[in-house]
Design a binder for these strands. Structure first.
Length: 320
DNA sequence: CGGTTTTGACCAGCGC
DNA sequence: GCGCTGGTCAAAACCG
């Protein structure tokens, strides 16, 4: 993987083409993904596009047919009814660990099933998303082996931009659960969790903010280990829970709560931080941010999608 | 030295 | 009221 990183860093153009091709192949080559480790390292068939357009930050997952190259599925994740984020905060997180093909089974997520939007899974099989018209609930896989699950509960309140929705979409074993936005369900005593993402590894779950761990619990008879994080920014109410199955250390479910009441300072801060703390997860995010900026500078949605596709298949940017 | 992680204890909500 | 479970606190340890 590091080798791939290096390759991307040195000759991005050629590799973009090559890797994108791998993505497309992975799209329909389910057996390869499930059998050969090399193929497993190609985590996902779909590219996820986060669109920092004029007034939205929705994600668009574009799936291409391996053979024809045509778009097979386009899945939109999130709403378009909130303020535009800062450009610099565009991020695409990826993961490329060999465990990417691992199955992810989360009972809590499986309760929220449905089957309306077709989605290619990590192993090439089809899963589906469910988005009830009434509350834009979402989605989970109808296939137990599917690595990609996306769940969404309740859309964001119009006019609000929720930075949590920017959280990286784990491209392997993805699950997104968006619970009621704080302002949309005022009856809840506690501010509801915003989103849950599941990643094959914790490292791929970084969302650009800096988090400080303040607790850890063993849950459900030690089946799950949940870690509690809060944003390091002073007075920021944002929190997240990272839940990892003890018997399945390759998957991580991240639950976001609250909203960041500040700009994504991590983006800026860690650009300097990364210089002295290369191993920092946030620094990785910074690199991704920079990548996103460059993508935007190149202009064009295609460029963005291509880059994000590249990232989606496992190119994990890490500082040297 | 400052920031982060670890970990045991405490507290609150909920069901019985 | 009691016990269970989840969430948070805070001191100590750890790390760069």
């Amino acid at each position: 993987m590091f080798q791939r990183d290096a390759q991307v860093g040195t000759k991005p153009e050629a590799d973009w083409v090559r890797l994108e091709h791998q993505v497309e192949c992975a799209n329909t080559s389910s057996e390869a993904l499930s059998v050969t480790p090399a193929a497993i390292s190609v985590p996902h068939s779909a590219s996820v596009t986060q669109k920092p357009m004029s007034n939205c930050y929705a994600k668009k997952k574009v799936q291409h047919c391996c053979q024809s190259g045509r778009v097979v599925d386009v899945v939109y994740i999130g709403d378009h009814n909130h303020d535009p984020p800062h450009r610099k905060c565009i991020r695409v997180i990826s993961s490329a660990k060999p465990t990417l093909g691992s199955q992810i089974v989360d009972p809590s997520v499986q309760k929220l099933d449905g089957s309306d939007i077709s989605v290619c899974s990590a192993d090439g099989r089809h899963s589906s998303l469910h988005v009830p018209e009434s509350e834009q609930q979402s989605s989970s896989s109808s296939n137990g082996n599917v690595g990609a699950k996306i769940e969404e509960k309740n859309a964001l309140v119009p006019g609000q931009w929720n930075p949590n929705k920017m959280a990286p979409v784990g491209l392997q074993g993805l699950r997104i659960k968006e619970r009621s936005a704080a302002h949309s369900v005022p009856v809840l005593k506690k501010e509801p969790a915003i989103a849950v993402h599941t990643f094959p590894d914790e490292g791929s779950s970084n969302d650009g903010y800096r988090w400080r761990k303040y607790g850890q619990k063993m849950l459900k008879g030690n089946s799950f280990i949940r870690s509690y994080y809060r944003c390091t920014s002073s007075a920021c109410p944002a929190r997240k829970h990272v839940e990892r199955a003890a018997d399945e250390a390759t998957s991580t479910t991240i639950t976001y709560e609250g909203k960041h009441d500040h700009d994504n300072a991590c983006c800026k801060k860690n650009r300097s931080l990364s210089a002295r703390r290369p191993s920092s997860k946030c620094s990785m995010d910074s690199e991704v941010d920079i990548m996103g900026e460059k993508i935007l500078e190149l202009g064009g949605e295609e460029a963005l999608e291509s880059a994000q596709t590249l990232l989606s298949i496992g190119v994990e940017l890490k500082p040297c």
